[in-house]
């Protein structure tokens, strides 16, 4: 079962209890900041008369996990995309690649690591809801299986079609995400990334990477073949020149008699 979070922008009252709970649960230093950082993994932002939460979307095929050269990021069987700080060497390709710009870096530390929402993976493993969902007093952030969350989202839209945009954000974005959002205002205006492909970005690099073994074999044989032919030409040219006599020896390497 893959877990999910449903965030309903129309229900959020902007109290920030989720952000506070996140800080406490993950023992993050400092107060909740304006934007997400390595030390603030979720924020609540007021826009267009409603509130939007910023947090890791926990993609079904996470781009960050696909790009990490040392596999420091991976998706757990339960669904959260988690981070192993002990492996990370700080290349920051995950930050570059994430279609939602989620991973943040500790720019102010001599020994820096990435910071991002890990969907309270230890709680989730024990069957508990995330800290943010538990703290939410308004049923704006709810937690459950992704299938249930999707059903709930569609149900809410069906019941009040005038209130909602008829779209569940995260259903298909970047190949689908564990966090789903519904809104009364177009998602783009709420600061969410639009124009994302339905296909996970990881497929585009995998298309190239998966062909490397074949390519190496073919390219290697081709290059050796070129060498074989040119070297052979050289040998033939030398033999022929030797047969004809010393004054016709061609010292150029093209194999053509001069």
């Amino acid at each position: 079962m893959t877990v999910g979070i449903l965030f309903d922008m129309t229900k959020c009252i902007g109290c920030g209890a989720c952000a506070d709970a996140c800080k406490e649960q993950n023992k993050l230093p400092g107060p909740v900041e304006e934007v997400t950082t390595a030390y603030t993994w979720t924020t609540v932002e007021a826009r267009e008369g409603q509130y939007v939460r910023h947090l890791c979307m926990h993609c079904l095929v996470p781009t960050c996990a696909s790009v990490c050269p040392v596999a420091a990021l991976h998706k757990t069987p339960e669904g959260p995309v988690v981070y192993d700080a002990d492996k990370c060497m700080g290349c920051r390709y995950c930050m570059m690649a994430c279609p939602f710009d989620v991973p943040k870096y500790q720019w102010d530390r001599a020994i820096p690591i990435i910071g991002k929402c890990i969907m309270c993976t230890s709680r989730v493993k024990q069957g508990e809801a995330t800290a943010c969902a538990t703290a939410c007093p308004a049923e704006a952030t709810v937690f459950g299986s992704r299938a249930d969350m999707l059903k709930e989202a569609k149900e809410r839209i069906r019941k009040e079609p005038d209130k909602y945009i008829d779209h569940v954000y995260g259903l298909k974005e970047a190949g689908g995400t564990g966090v789903l959002m519904i809104s009364g205002v177009p998602f783009e205006k709420m600061g969410l990334k639009a124009k994302l492909t339905d296909e996970p970005p990881a497929m585009r690099t995998w298309q190239v990477l998966s062909n490397i073994p074949d390519f190496v074999a073919v390219w290697g044989v081709f290059l050796y073949g070129v060498h074989w032919i040119t070297a052979r030409r050289d040998t033939v040219a030398h033999h022929e020149a030797a047969r004809k006599g010393p004054d016709t020896i061609d010292t150029t390497h093209t194999g053509r008699p001069s």
């Binding site: 696909s66 790009v67 990490c68 050269p69 040392v70 596999a71 420091a72 492996k87 990370c88 060497m89 700080g90 290349c91 920051r92 390709y93 870096y105 500790q106 020994i111 820096p112 690591i113 990881a202 690099t205 995998w206 190239v208 990477l209 490397i212």
Partner: peptide, 23 residues
């Protein structure tokens, strides 16, 4: 690199799905 002393991690922690791993 944020932690360049870990550059050798690519040798022991593999992720063939990563272009950076190839790089």
């Amino acid at each position: 690199l944020g932690q360049p002393w870990r550059i050798w991690h690519t040798i022991i922690y593999w992720n063939p799905h990563s272009v950076m791993f190839e790089v």
